[in-house]
Write a protein that binds this DNA or RNA. Structure first.
Lengths: 197, 197
DNA sequence: GAAAAAAAATGAACTAGTTTAAGACTTTTA
DNA sequence: TAAAAGTCTTAAACTAGTTCATTTTTTTTC
């Protein structure tokens, strides 16, 4: 069968870990919601309960918290072919502490909590898909939390550039500072220094 | 059926997320290896390929990397009823960058990579178990990696004490410093200060 | 395409956390 | 149970990163 581009993208993403029959593909797609957001729009704001887990088919978003001083701390950037959301609020149905904001016009596919539960009942293979997906995310967050406490800001910047070359040019230096965990001023100094090397 | 204490502990841990039949329980247990380590023994050293994922039935261990200067950065402490290991090396079969060392006499149940794969074939329900286990770990590592860059060392210490009161009294201040991401000297100052408050 | 708003650069004064060193205390080992 | 090894404390000098303030550059908006 012929699917639209965004559906092809998500089906290919899933095909990395599990094989679905035509019927399963159609069933899966029927559980998704299409969402479009303009640059600067929020997909989620602190205090709200997350309705969806998201797959990005187009665009770029940032996931962040605000501390007591109102300084943003960016937890991830998500672009095409990435999954994002607030897994904690999605699972517990408690208010989120995160903001998710589009840094470009973005298009997403969302799965609601209800449909997420239905998915596992109807196509148990998805337990495997999410098992592998979470396992891979876990490995990279374990590494990130280690690097956050063991590397200098400069080392974290060099590592980010190496790991996410597609992202580094799409975001502002200010947002990158919020991800690295430093002030925009110090980020500016590091970039000047590293480019000089 | 009657199981030994360590097997009861692991079966109860699993029963949080999935129900197993008697037969499945016995099958599962047959896939585990019992491991005992003395204080200061290594379960894993950097450069080795991890053989097992571990469930701790008794004792306490630390998981850490060494940086270029030989300074340890502790990624987690694991006590009774916790899972640990190097998931990255376990999955990719590449050499680990981690050390796992017992800080007390410890007893563990290990599952080998071969048996881990068999487990999913024979009892597919375990995909669900690991999906939920990894999901929960992921949520806490996402939070940790955020706090690592957004909180001060003092705030991270207070948070650790609140979150893991059972662990804080079992480990040295030096190891706690390695987890918080600061020097033992500064850890000492923080503890003096916080206790004075 | 001009005006406004936001991002980036630069520099000086500051602070959280490091380094080095030395002495006191505690645990391990023979 | 004494000696050795490791841990904890304290303090002074230092450095990575912050804060605040100002100017320049880029992006957004009408």
């Amino acid at each position: 069968m012929n699917y639209k581009e965004s559906h092809n993208l998500i089906l290919n993403n899933i095909a990395r870990f599990i094989d679905l029959t035509e019927l399963e593909k159609q069933k899966y797609i029927s559980l998704l919601t299409e969402i479009k957001v303009e640059k600067k729009d929020f997909l989620l704001q602190a205090g709200e309960i997350t309705k969806y887990e998201y797959f990005i088919t187009k665009g770029c978003l940032k996931v962040y918290t605000l501390d007591d001083e109102g300084t943003p701390h960016i937890s991830m950037f998500a672009i095409e072919d990435y999954w994002t959301g607030d897994l904690s609020s999605f699972m517990t149905k408690e208010p989120s502490r995160y903001y998710i904001k589009a840094t470009e016009h973005s298009e997403l596919l969302g799965i609601s909590r209800t449909n997420y539960d239905i998915l596992f009942q109807e196509i148990p293979k998805f337990e495997r898909f999410y098992r592998i997906l979470y396992q891979k995310s876990l490995i990279s967050y374990i590494r990130r939390s280690n690097h956050g406490i063991s590397l200098t800001a400069e080392e974290r910047y060099i590592e980010f550039k190496k790991k996410y070359p597609q992202i580094v040019n799409r975001i502002t230096q200010k947002d990158l500072a919020g991800y690295i965990g430093i002030t925009p001023e110090f980020m500016s100094k590091i970039i000047t220094k590293v480019n000089r090397m």
